[in-house]
Nucleic acid binder design. Sequence first.
DNA 1: TTGTAAGCGTTATCAA
DNA 2: TTGATAACGCTTACAA
Lengths: 337, 337
Amino acid sequence: MTMGNTKPATIYDVAARAGVSKSLVSLVLQRSPRVSEQRRAAVLAAIQELDYRPSTAAVSLAGTRSRTIGVVLDDFRNQWFVDLLTGLRESLQDQGHRLVVADRFLNTGLDVSPVEGFLSMRVEGLVIAGEPDPDLVVPAGTPVVVAGGRAALPRADTVANDDLAGGRMAAGHLVELGHVRLGFVGGRSAASDARLEGWRAGIDVAAGVGDDVTGVAVVLAADVTEETGVSGTHRLLDEHPDVTAVFAANDVTALGAMSAIADRGLRVPEDVSVIGYDDTPIAASRYVGLTSIDDRSIDIGRGAGARLLERIADPTLPTTEVLVEPRLVARRTTARR
Amino acid sequence: MTMGNTKPATIYDVAARAGVSKSLVSLVLQRSPRVSEQRRAAVLAAIQELDYRPSTAAVSLAGTRSRTIGVVLDDFRNQWFVDLLTGLRESLQDQGHRLVVADRFLNTGLDVSPVEGFLSMRVEGLVIAGEPDPDLVVPAGTPVVVAGGRAALPRADTVANDDLAGGRMAAGHLVELGHVRLGFVGGRSAASDARLEGWRAGIDVAAGVGDDVTGVAVVLAADVTEETGVSGTHRLLDEHPDVTAVFAANDVTALGAMSAIADRGLRVPEDVSVIGYDDTPIAASRYVGLTSIDDRSIDIGRGAGARLLERIADPTLPTTEVLVEPRLVARRTTARR
DNA sequence: TTGTAAGCGTTATCAA
DNA sequence: TTGATAACGCTTACAA
């Protein structure tokens, strides 16, 4: 079928082979209905025979739109982007847009930043996944939405998980299980702060209803990592040995918490319950079975994609901020006390 | 600095602003030394002032090469690609190539497969990460290398982990620790098979030296998942209660094995040692601390990138297959018996 | 060292 | 329903 040893076929080759003009081929490519069945068949056959593929470079240069959306991830190691992408695919790709994905470092050296690269590609819009870099600059006129991430970017819509609600849920779950002395372990991040705030609000609600619930928080001046969970939890339990439930700012921190609890000869959940945030695959694994707050990344992706489409259609829209309600996923690390 | 409310600036705009011809601007863009300092400065200033970015579409259409490499991942969920990308970046990106990443499903619907999309972009080469789809077709003339993955693709170089060596290492490690009754748990995959084969060879070596070592394998007709590890290990220990060390085909399967071992009231590593494969972040986490075989994805990436460059330079090169020697990473799940 | 002009492979605008 | 022909934004001989 294909020889492929030489230059790729062009629209001219196809036209010649099918015995029509290039414009006709272009019309067929664009699925125009104003083409006779006969010619269409001839063109399609020629395309097959020549193994022809339109050059995206030529298409986007000649056309009025690139039909391309750039997605900037903070780090490929943060698995939450996988679900986010699923949601983005649904809302964007299925509408005929091509998704191009890069993490913060992918093409540095060639481009200053992935955003620069996307702008060179003349993307129609940008999705910034996670917390946008503080010194990120996107030219006015480029539609942008921030997906997950609290910091506002000028002129950008935001679709994010409701960390406050998630924090409240975590507290509520533990209170329901009968815990009265709660602990929080987090670090230096906007998400951690918001989750802590929600958790405190949740405790206040319970206390208001008459439950004798109190909470103590350890917030380290460090990134929200597993190691933070380890040292934070040790400090928490050193200072407050009566704590029976720990809410960690995210799942890897929760893993650290479990590790610290094991260090101390305590068991999860018999002695101490642990709850994380993000509902990552690690949490869902049978071995770990971590109770977690699902931030519903798929829905964030869907929402972000939908919003981006709206903004592309009408760039004058006022910016909005939508919060997606998280969901508690109870597993084996939390138990009644 | 930037207004950005209208169309992006073109090379014409820059030329006009700097008072030179477009060719001169093009030369500056390409860092040609044959440009007077005066003009260069003027052009650079104009670029700044207009917030100009060359259109990649126009560049690759007009130029002779796209300077772009397509990377096809099997699945964004398999974290091993993160290290692979790091290696590819080093060898490719630093040589002035742009990396574009897609997983198997990223733009299906628009393109038939990510490979189709890459061919439309006129990439200069392709990296297929992981086991290539059996019905994957790449036109002759397109340089391809398979990175990680045993199945040979026609006309493609291969750079992969030496699974046989890794299997041998796993067996060797356990024998050294004094284990004599070894178990293997795997599933339906080429990697699993090769690792099993290496493990058997390792046992044979030990037995040859006079050690009284034997091994029993459970290979399920299922994917190599955590669940496979659970049921495989249960079966293994049901049938062979004297096994004191389990080698799992990969880390998530090892997680399943640990889960099953816990189900039975046994402890890791006191009662049963467990070793995985891939050295994923989960294995490296403090909480899990899984002994594993590091497949050295970074080096696979480096090698694959380097080889791709060679093949692009000289497409007539005979195809090669290079194996990267894995490395044992001992952690808490294996112990002397 | 700089400018002119001819492509690159499409889409888009008109005519026919 | 089809076909010329002019863009699109850049690179690249070729001249000057």
